[in-house]
């Protein structure tokens, strides 16, 4: 199995800082903007971005967690039911700008499900998508990221492995070639 390192801890920190500055450029003081992390793995990234933004803006940015399990399109096409995670959104998203945060953008299907799931909390003014890794040329539906930490050319059989400190490991993000 071949592994290529896409992010280590240091680069990840720099990239999150850059993404936060890009966000501030568009959303100013975040008074009308909220961040929603996608379960299960987008939430750690969303938390880091929120903390960084809080520090840069010396304020409090709203953060919620969204689980899109019940809105997925592959529910009855698997051998097992999909385990839902917690949804925790303690604010209204009606007329807010929402930044969806996830770790990897691949087929785009999770994002579609998340858009549906989010609609059950109200009608946002605008939705943007932020991802750490944007896997190019692999979309199944027309979804694109507004902010990307890094764009990567991948083929279908490759996999992106995200290891974050919050899950008890070092910060390391790998691109893995599965052996035939």
């Amino acid at each position: 199995m071949q592994k290529r390192l896409l992010f280590d801890s240091k680069l990840l920190k720099v990239t999150i800082g850059r993404l936060c500055r890009q966000l501030i450029e568009v959303h100013n003081d975040f008074s009308g903007t909220v961040i929603i992390g996608l379960q299960p793995r987008g939430i750690f990234l969303a938390e880091r971005i929120k903390n960084e933004l809080d520090r840069m803006l010396s304020g409090e940015v709203h953060l919620g967690y969204l689980d899109a399990t019940f809105h997925r399109d592959d529910l009855r096409r698997r051998n097992e039911p999909i385990a839902p995670s917690q949804t925790k959104i303690s604010f209204l998203i009606e007329d807010k700008n929402v930044i969806l945060v996830d770790d990897v953008l691949f087929t785009g299907r999770t994002v579609r499900a998340a858009l549906d799931a989010m609609n059950t909390f109200g009608r946002p003014a605008k939705v943007e998508l932020l991802v750490l890794i944007d896997r190019l040329y692999s979309r199944h539906i027309p979804v694109k990221a507004d902010y990307a930490g890094r764009k990567v050319n991948t083929i279908q059989s490759q996999r992106v492995l995200v290891e974050l400190k919050e899950q008890g490991e070092e910060d390391n993000i790998w691109l893995i070639n599965k052996e035939e």
Binding site: R72, L75, S85, Q86, F121, G122
Partner: peptide, 16 residues
Amino acid sequence: ANFKEVLNRPIKKNPS
């Protein structure tokens, strides 16, 4: 517990 949370949302229906 997950569904109880869903039932407290403004829109309770989901397509699962």
